[in-house]
Amino acid sequence: MNSIDWIILFTTLALIVGYGTWQSRGSKNIDGYLLGNKSLPWWNVCLSIMATQASAITFLSTPGQAYEDGMRFLQFYFGLPLAMVILSITAVPLYHRLKVYTAYEYLETRFDLKTRSLAAFFFLMLRGLSVGITIYAPALILSTMLGWNINLTTVFIGSLVMIYTVSGGTKAVSMTQKYQLTIIMAGMIIAGLTAFYKLPNDITFTEAFQLAGEMGKMNLINLSFDLSDRYNIWSGLIGGLFLFLSYFGADQSQVGRYLGGKSVTESRLGLLFNGLLKVPMQFIILYIGILVFVFYQFHQAPVFHNQSLINQAKQTEYADRITLLESDYDKVFLERKQEAENLIGAIRKEDAKQIEASRKSIEEIQASEKSIRSQVKEQIAAAIPGANTLDKDYVFITFVMTYLPHGLIGLLLAVVFMAAMSSTASELNALASTTTVDIYKRSIKPIADDYHYVTASKWFTVGWAVFGMLFASIANQAENLIQFVNIIGSIFYGTILGIFLSAFYLKYIKSNAIFIAAIVAEAVIVYCYFFTKIAFLLYNIIGCLIVVVLGFVLQYLENQRIKKASR
């Protein structure tokens, strides 16, 4: 980082925060503050939805995931376009016609107050905890890379978001997201192109594909059926469909984005374009990871990508052993570079025999590299007890900080901040909307003027932001807490989706049956989490099915009871 990078980083951050605050000034009534006066065109709805879903970890982790594991993560998103189509047909016209502020408000018109409050409570639980991690995860990586204090980094990101979300509400969130996502995608593509242009021997895009393919990284589609494994086409289409139906249809962080659309058509088109663009966008981000992987076939990769941690380990008695392993790694790299060049030569000559020979030899070299890397991780774990030796989140950012020219480093760091801010802003805004509309205005203070509710929403936004930052500083002490929050969506989403699916499609089920079914389903899911080894992705399906089936049975029994009583 030099002065140009710092200037670019802070100018970008200041412009975005200033723009959001200025553009959304004067949101005095509750319609303006919580729905942005329903003024968004479809393209802004689409950008808002995409910016909300893509958190900083998406842009840091996904290239690292492709680097280590290939492109197969893409399959996880195949259910998303299907969910967009279903929600455009069902949820969007319903929410618009009922003029709701939150998704849960609809549940009271369909069922009753207790079901609405239960769903709102589930949402506040899952989103309130995860907003802390949305801030914490990038803050951890940024603080490591920049040498900042982790808690100060958390407060810095949280405060930036708070400035414009508190002052401008939903409108500020959506207005800033269109620029944030533009900066994010531009920065990512520039980083990918940099990796590509630094490849030797005029390697073409197709050759980069082939090279990655020969090394097993282009594992885009797996046709085997196993719902407990996230990475096959059926998990993506079925498990992903359930997950994205609940995320986009029943999570206020997303529902709040398309409720701000000008009309049913604008909201629908926003969702549908998200369905068109999301998979290609993830493909691009994963492919950037592949380009970094190909780049490191010809340039020396660090043996461990979290440089700060390995440097700490070198301050201990384990330093000699780590240095020895590093020099082994350097030797192996030279062999691999030679083989990668042989492989490119063979691909150009279309010499199948030589391709096969090079591929085999690279496989052997990769195995010894992997063994050296795991030995280094063991040494680091021994040197610093409790250290996190997973370094895939650091692959991309370390590449950026090492190989990108000054100026672009500042831009890419701004990208990480933007991604963290755009997701956090939507989440805080949704938490405040739900707290105000579904809890405060409905059950605590039902009669007051608009000014009162706008002020209350602002304070709830501040409250949730402070809660998120406090939770992040606790999470810093507890690794297993972070893992719990990362799957907390799976714990609540199935039940919430079951409630909403019953509300949309199963007119037979009434309020008491759905309420009891939802509580039983949630208890079963919590039991599964603590006492079984069922894959988390299946929780969504199990929870949803229990709510629907049990709701049916309970309603049938209730109807029988009423019939008997009336005889």
Binding site: M71, L74, F78, P81, L82, M84, V85, S88, I89, F209, Q210, A212, G213, E214, G216, M218, N219, L220, I221, I233, T265, R268, L269, L272, G275, L276, V279, P280, F283
Partner: peptide, 27 residues
């Protein structure tokens, strides 16, 4: 808006076929 729904589904289907082609021909 039926055409938009079909477009989204068609684009997904085309992408899956393209990715299937890539993963079989580059592996």
């Amino acid at each position: 808006w039926g055409s938009w729904y079909w477009l989204v589904m068609a684009v997904l289907a085309i992408q899956i076929m393209l990715y299937l082609f890539i993963s079989t021909s580059f592996q």
